[in-house]
Amino acid sequence: MSDDHVYMTLAEGHDDSDARWAFGTGFEDPLHGVDTTVPAGVDREDLAALCLALGDDALVSAQRLAEWTTRAPELEEEVALANIGLDLLGQARLLYARCGQADGTGRGEDAYAYFRDPDDFRNVRLAELPNGDFAFSVVRLLVLSSWRLAHFERLTRDPDPVLAAVAAKGVKELAYHRQWAAEWAVRLGDGTEESRRRTQAALGQVAPYLGELFSAFDVRDEVVAVLGQVTEAAGLSMPAWQPLPGRGREGRHTEHLAPLLAELQSVARAHPGATW
């Protein structure tokens, strides 16, 4: 019978030529056919710094999203949160690889993720804050995805063809992340008294970190417009904010990043010389 055939093929040996089974959530290579030589006229140091910062934002966000696994309020959201985390993890991997090419060290993705200390990370602090409740995670994602999407849209025209290709793939992903977060923000804002209270509180918690985002990339108008639209639809109000001092982009982080990285890096650092 056919099921026996399916069953038997599982026992067959396989070579390692298809080692890249998991790359983000899709299986297409976004860099297929892209020339990976850094073009003349592109400042390598600037390119490396930008890839590192964007990679760190994505990795730290993916790590926080992974923490939701088995804790989401509904199975559909379990799947959605993992989807978003996987997209961001995929973005981080591509950006780290480009960083290694641009900074001339040739380091691979894992060198950046596992063997740097918290001071060396360049993510914005909003990404590293603990997950809080579902409302906080939704509002944070709404802000970060709107901000990253606005920036990635510009990067699709970047003179570096690799960064432009990564951005082109990322734009589609981020548009979904923003959509998912916006829909939930509206549901929560409009839903019950409790959900409204929690979501309004989350906006207040996120607001002090907005200044840092806008000093990193000048996409303030787009992001403020999106937040205005969503909060209005949700019946919420965007609080006035005072920017907090300190910048993740300069390696000055909250107390929450070190434990996040200690967990992320624990196995890799416990086994020097191991291959995984």
Binding site: W21, Q63, A66, A82, L86, L89, A92, A268, A274, W276
Partner: peptide
């Protein structure tokens, strides 16, 4: 183990599997 997977490739594989 998703948050502690020792390489980014293994992290992606495991995250996708649990999803």
């Amino acid at each position: 183990w998703i948050t502690r997977a020792p390489s980014l490739r293994r992290k992606a594989i495991l995250f996708a599997k649990v999803q």
